[in-house]
Amino acid sequence: MNWTWFHRLGSPPHIYRIAGTLTPWFAWPAGLLIVAALYGGLVLAPPDYQQGEGFRILYVHAPSAWLAVMIYGVMASAAAVGLIWRMKVAHAVAASCAGVGAWFTAVSLVTGMLWGKPMWGTYWVWDPRLTAQLILFILYLGYMGLRAGIDDLGRADRASAVLAIVGVVNIPIIRYSVEWWNSIHQAPSVMKMDRPSMPLDMLAPLLMMLLGFTLYFAAILLVRLRAEILRRERTASWIREVLR
């Protein structure tokens, strides 16, 4: 088997160049999808039979919660690759994920509170789903704090990678909390085994939002990765070439 692609995948100048080329291909579809989904979610989708117009918070809450968890998955996977194969670019990917992940975990918590108040009568309860999501936020902050606290880059990469990997246990807890425990949080309407329990005009904007947010994250990650690679390579001569 030819492994050249794998070695090129680990080559910083190659990644830097590819990331720059790919960014607009993720950013533009993301922007279009999010704008279309906004119109679909706020205008075209019918009100919910139980929650009326209030259910529309779904279109910002679910995609941010999805990003919060998905980004953690990307971060921990990249950290594991970096730890196992000592691939520096993988550590750079993991480091680029944390800030964005923390932002969208915060958004999922805040939008959830704003949804909880009218529907449950309270902004916050120490419910399994909510608590696990708060722990996810703390994990992100811990990861960033740990990186910031270690001067040596190699040690910071390895220590934060271990933290990211250990924190993965929280992910299935978030996912299944509404099934394992008697949670106040509603059960999933889309990401479940049988068919989604939603009419199409309600579902389509949500799916577009989920895809739009995912592509948006890909674009942000690529830009952050380029910054991270420049900072890490410091003196490499190829940087001279690309900055010219």
Binding site: E53, G54, R56, I57, L114, W115
Partner: peptide
């Protein structure tokens, strides 16, 4: 938004 405006619009704004 049928009375949900004070919850709904801040949620969209934060996002």
């Amino acid at each position: 938004m049928d009375g949900y405006a004070i919850f709904l619009w801040p949620a969209y704004l934060v996002t």
